[in-house]
């Protein structure tokens, strides 16, 4: 009993002492590094340097692979699985979802309008412009978010973000944009902040297994995890949405992010959470110069 009291007292006194010496305690938020101060900074230039370094990393890791091949994920770098994949692509499993997506896309809302009324060029051939940073609302707008915003603006209920109708619409829109080149801009301080937040997410270790996106998909990309080849991060967003045979259906990039987080035993974030949108923004910027090849099929 005596030792118990002494133990308690000792700890309490240490706590009080250290609290007195410094008032800093566990904070509820991470500190975002102030990236830049002056308004004259050329953000696009800074970002382009990142893109260059990113590309150079993969170019030296996979010296025999052409840049444009990276849109094909692990199949870009592995001849054996590539053969099987090419066979699957002859009768692609996303064909039916794309057709359904077109029907959904063209079906008028209750008010008589359609998705085409919400998007530039009637929504055709525009996939490469997403995600973009919207200076008015000060946030990253992904294609999936824009689809649901369109619905809500027309008095319709938003769709589920992971799989199903929305993924099919996204697949149709990607399919109509194939071979268009991504060129996502980062032109303002606010856009750069979102970009940097996405970048920080990409390089931060999380979950019980303590993995960052970059650990598997940059540092050790190309090596085997059990029987699976870790895909290089460059080109990740170009083929979205993706039909994964282990899902047995089409899913959005958000669905894949959540799955990845679960794999490292980190609690997944909400679909279209600010962090996931920023991550998609960063990843797509890193894939600038590559073409839209979504929807795609993967193991």
């Amino acid at each position: 009993m005596k030792t118990k009291i002494t133990w308690c007292l000792a700890i309490i006194s240490i706590m009080i002492l250290s609290a007195c010496s410094d008032s800093e305690t566990l904070k509820g938020d991470t500190e975002v590094q102030p990236a830049v101060q002056a308004s004259t900074v050329n953000y696009q230039q800074k970002v382009n340097q990142d893109v260059k370094r990113f590309r150079e990393f993969f170019a030296s890791k996979f010296p025999n692979i052409e840049l444009e091949e990276f849109v094909n994920g692990a199949y870009a770098i592995d001849a054996a699985t590539r053969e099987q994949w090419l066979e699957i692509e002859e009768f692609p499993p996303y064909e039916i979802p794309v057709e359904e997506g077109q029907e959904f896309f063209e079906a008028p809302f209750a008010n008589g309008k359609t998705y085409a009324d919400c998007f530039e060029n009637g929504g055709i051939g525009i996939r490469q412009n997403f995600p973009y940073f919207d200076e008015k609302t000060n946030q990253v707008i992904t294609l999936e978010l824009a689809i649901n915003q369109c619905r809500e603006a027309n008095g319709e209920q938003p769709l589920d973000y992971g799989q199903g109708e929305l993924a099919s619409i996204s697949a149709y829109m990607a399919n109509e944009s194939r071979d268009n080149v991504f060129d996502i801009k980062v032109n303002s301080e606010a856009a750069y902040k979102a970009y940097m937040a996405g970048k920080q997410f990409f390089y931060s270790k999380r979950g019980q297994l303590n993995f960052a996106c970059a650990d598997c998909h940059l540092k050790i990309s190309g090596s085997l995890l059990r029987a699976d080849i870790l895909s290089p991060a460059i080109g990740h967003p170009t083929g979205m949405p993706v039909y994964r045979s282990n899902w047995g259906e089409l899913g959005t990039i958000g669905h894949r992010y959540r799955e990845c987080n679960k794999n490292v035993r980190a609690e997944p974030l909400d679909y279209q959470s600010e962090s996931y949108r920023n991550l998609e923004f960063y990843q797509t910027v890193m894939s600038n110069g590559l073409v839209v090849n979504g929807p795609s099929s993967r193991k």
Binding site: I220, S223, L224, L225, R226, A227, L230
Partner: peptide, 16 residues
Amino acid sequence: CLACHYIQGGALMGTT
């Protein structure tokens, strides 16, 4: 361990 490492007697081993 086999997810990333070769161990004698294992199957489906990673190369990470």
